[in-house]
């Protein structure tokens, strides 16, 4: 299947648009359906799609395993860190109101940052799981 030129060209054409669609879902989660969770899965799906056609090794060069592991933790850090920042500003944990002058702008900002954290973690976990499953070598 990997030798078929149709798959190769289609995967090359679709790789970018899938990621852009993922980013759209990520940052328009407050206006339409979607959010960090779905966006993370969509972006991870783009990488998995690419690796199915071109092999695992090329995707590992693009997105190394160690990098994926760091992103996994970074997402949780962004989410939990937002809460810490609100405490520093003197509000409750994960209360976004002090981030901006008007309450709705503050909520927008908080929601976008928090969703980014969700998206990063979900993307990295999905890709990491795929790496682990397809690179797994059973002991005989």
């Amino acid at each position: 299947m990997r030798e078929n030129p149709v798959f190769k060209i289609v995967s090359k054409i679709l790789f970018g648009p899938i990621i852009i669609y993922g980013l759209y879902v990520q940052f328009h989660g407050d206006y339409g359906p979607g959010g960090g969770f779905q966006a993370g899965v969509i972006v991870a799906a783009a990488f998995i799609f690419y690796s199915i056609i071109f092999g695992l090794e090329r995707v590992r060069k693009l997105m190394p395993v160690i990098f994926v592991n760091y992103i996994m933790a970074l997402g949780v850090l962004v989410f939990a860190g937002t809460g810490i920042v609100s405490i520093i500003f003197g509000a409750n944990y994960l209360d976004y109101s002090p981030f901006a002058y008007k309450i709705y702008k503050a909520q927008h900002l908080g929601i976008i940052v928090v969703e980014l954290g969700v998206g990063l973690t979900v993307f990295a976990v999905m890709l990491g799981l795929f790496y682990a499953f397809s690179g797994f070598k059973p002991k005989k």
């Binding site: 989410f79 944990y93 994960l94 709705y104 909520q107 908080g110 929601i111 973690t121």
Partner: peptide, 27 residues
């Protein structure tokens, strides 16, 4: 909040702590 999608509002703002828990579970 001026945000049309109530689901996102509830997930990320009203129940931000629950969502943090979910992310930690996924992680």
């Amino acid at each position: 909040f001026h945000i049309p999608n109530v689901v996102t509002n509830v997930l990320a703002s009203y129940r931000g702590f629950d969502t943090l828990g979910e992310v930690v579970v996924v992680f």
